[in-house]
Design a protein around this nucleic acid. Structure first.
Length: 343
DNA sequence: CATGCGTGGCA
DNA sequence: TTGCCAAGCAT
């Protein structure tokens, strides 16, 4: 695996060259949090933006949480951003700005679980930690043609991964396994002819290696409906901050009421007004799909309106999650169209 | 241990 | 078009 990695490992902004000294633990940690359930391509621009703006853990700890949340907008799973900031503050205040070097110490920090703790310990500190992510699960399940479905197979997969983990170049080994899973032993179309582990792989002997790991069927996603309210006053639009827990927690948003099976209409409008339909945004979340009707009105006053007024011309800087960025784009497009009609 | 939590790309 | 998937964590 290490020979294969030396010749075929990916070059990534947060990664040292094979055999080089370990990279900055701050950068390893930041990249690992961003990469949770997220593709390398999606992470790259965010990693660049964060490291330029906050080049070390103390700088990130000193930032306002609202700025960190806004900078994360679009990357998804927003609890990660809140935990990222909390972790930076914990490392700065409790550890003098130095990350703990053991899996156990790392695991106690917010946002760092079994995988991320092991990955940082191995990649940044050379600890012989067993790094088991979805790539490693897939590679191991195929090596042994494990018929037990996930998640029940996890204890067995972990035991095998621990046996495979070497004592030296632990970070390179972990990244080698993940690169193999990402480039050769892929979920849908594994390229067994190019695989360095083919000789010892049980799944490669079958007619369908992609059948491993065995997974349970997924549930169908329900469709919910909601209404978002675009309220303008003197070139500014009303934004609110969503509750810290739950969907899009802690993010700026357009006011919108409950999302339910039945369309809520104007029931949760922030003010009484003549609302005009501006269209519907479709968006798919992890466990449901949403049809969000966008309605708009111009407020005569700001009296009694809860929220934050944001200049419409700089709405991109508000850090809206993608759902509400789509809704805002729709509201503005319709607004331009209406002005042109008026002329 | 099951569930909730984003987003964009791809077959 | 639709479903699946990507370096998981918290509860």
């Amino acid at each position: 695996m290490l020979d294969w990695y030396d010749a075929n490992g990916r070059t990534l902004p947060w990664r040292a060259r094979p055999g080089d000294p370990p990279p900055d633990p701050y950068r390893v940690w930041l990249s690992e949090i961003m990469l949770q359930q997220t593709t390398v391509a999606a992470v790259k621009p965010y990693y660049r933006k964060f490291t330029e703006r906050w080049p070390n853990v103390e700088a990130l700890a000193a930032a306002d949480e609202a700025d960190v949340m806004a900078a994360w907008a679009g990357l998804g799973y927003y609890a990660r951003a809140r935990n990222l900031h909390a972790c930076a503050r914990a490392v700065t205040s409790d550890y003098g700005g130095q990350f703990p070097e053991t899996e156990k110490g790392l695991r106690a920090l917010p946002g760092i679980g079994a995988y991320t703790g092991a990955a940082i310990a191995a990649i940044a500190f050379g600890e012989p930690a067993a790094v088991v992510d979805a790539n490693v699960e897939r590679v191991v399940a195929r090596l042994h043609a494990i018929e037990t479905p996930l998640p029940r197979a996890r204890p067995e997969i972990r035991r095998i991964a621990e046996e495979l983990t070497p004592r030296k170049r632990t970070g390179d080994f972990a990244q080698a396994m993940m690169d193999l899973g990402a480039t050769i032993c892929t979920a849908r179309n594994p390229d067994c002819t190019a695989c360095p582990l083919r000789a010892g792989c049980a799944a490669a002997e079958t007619d369908n290696p992609a059948a491993y790991p065995v997974k349970p069927a997924k549930k169908a996603k329900p469709v919910k409906r909601g209404t978002a309210f675009w309220l303008e006053h003197e070139g500014e639009v009303l934004l609110v901050r969503r509750p810290a827990r739950g969907m899009l927690g802690g993010m700026r948003a357009l006011p919108s009421g409950a999302w339910e099976e039945a369309a809520p209409g104007l029931a949760d409008a922030p003010v009484a007004a003549e609302w005009e339909a501006r269209g519907t945004v479709s968006h798919v979340f992890t466990h449901f799909a949403l049809e969000l009707d966008v309605v708009a009105a111009s407020g005569l006053t700001r009296e009694g309106v809860e929220g934050e007024w944001w200049p419409i011309d700089t709405i991109e800087g508000a850090g809206l999650p993608t759902l509400f960025a789509k809704a805002a784009a729709l509201a503005r497009a319709q607004r331009r169209a209406q002005r042109e009609d008026d002329e």
